[in-house]
Design a protein around this nucleic acid. Structure first.
Lengths: 198, 198
DNA sequence: CATATAGTTCAAGACCACGTGAACTGCACC
DNA sequence: GGTGCAGTTCACGTGGTCTTGAACTATATG
């Protein structure tokens, strides 16, 4: 996770030297980076977002090598990024008929990535917090030394945690609902691509 | 080293080494750390959460020095943490009648911190993303070279961004509503403390 | 004025996560 | 076998954030 207040001006990053990007069109670079920023903001790696964005924008599956060139990343890096993305189900590995290399295609629902993974880490995380607070409470209760008042505050804290948790679940749910609407927009254009899992 | 025999953990395995924490009770340490983890998860500094939690649990205002000792932080660090927290309105700086030093008291709504700040960084952030995508679109449109299909995808992307944004706003709103209910639980116990801003 | 305590600021360092690049595996084709 | 390419893995370097510790300001007290 990164900065808090986002001191960076809203100015466009477009002004920076775009020469870096291999043969990416300017508009592609901007869009790709935008997604990268969003995704980083949500606690993922910037480049995970960039890779997904590139694949999505291109529409057709790309090889690791192409991604490597377009995004100016290292071989190893691309490999790992792709692995992550595939594991999360936001890209798909496809093998074209007479091709020697794997190709990767973007799944349309980036949202799945966010909700799914957030959900997942939420699960473990929330569980742990809950356990910690419960433990604290147990300790505080057995130890006779703890003032009634403080114990009360501890309990309030747990309550608050629960509520925040509930709010978050709700968010995920509504988000997904809301998104199901959005997804209709994404109904595939042709869906010609033949897909076979490895 | 400070071997206190205090509660000594009645029934507790006490396997952890709480020796680190100044003179924090074991249960306090756990709770404080739990909050620290949550807050870090939300993109703040762990110690910001810990400080707030300590202040909240203690109920009475503490001096910077006390916080420093209890949480085993550096002078400078505490100063900066307190400044942040105060700026966000989640703690309050109070001067007790015949005391020479400032004291700090926790505001009851940590939630304000999350919603408020998240809201804020959202604002700038979302604006920027939106601007970037718009820019990309503009570029792509003017450049005659861009395939209709890709342009369509770019637009879908923007749509998705908007929806996610909307979902997030909704989350913040409902969260706040939900929380307003929670806050009743927090109705202050006495609220005698005299408060004057610096 | 000297001393002490409270608080702030900042450069230096600790720390950690990310990406790199090289070594390695696996596979195909000659 | 050997050559070439696709892909994986991992130790290391780099960059960025957080914390520290010391220098500094401020304010009171004798």
């Amino acid at each position: 996770m990164k900065g808090y207040l986002w001191t960076g001006g809203p100015g466009s990053p477009a002004s920076e030297a775009p020469a870096e990007e291999g043969r990416l069109a300017a508009w592609e670079a901007i869009a790709v980076d935008a997604v990268g920023n969003v995704i980083e903001f949500w606690g993922f790696k910037r480049n995970q977002g960039r890779v997904w964005a590139l694949l999505y924008l291109r529409g057709e599956p790309l090889t690791a090598g192409e991604i490597e060139r377009e995004l100016d990343l290292s071989k190893g890096g691309v490999s790992m990024l792709l692995r992550d993305l595939e594991r999360w189900g936001v890209i798909q590995r496809v093998r074209l008929p007479n091709d020697t290399a794997w190709r990767y295609a973007a799944e349309t629902d980036l949202v799945r990535m966010v909700t799914h993974v957030i959900e997942e880490r939420e699960a473990g995380f929330v569980a742990r917090i809950r356990a910690d607070l419960a433990e604290a409470r147990r300790l505080a209760e057995t130890s006779s030394e703890v003032p009634h008042e403080r114990l009360a505050r501890l309990e309030k804290m747990a309550t608050l945690a629960e509520h925040v948790e509930r709010a978050l679940r709700l968010f995920i749910k509504t988000s997904r609902l809301d998104v199901s609407g959005v997804l209709s927009v994404f109904r595939d254009e042709g869906g010609a691509s033949r897909r076979e899992k490895r």
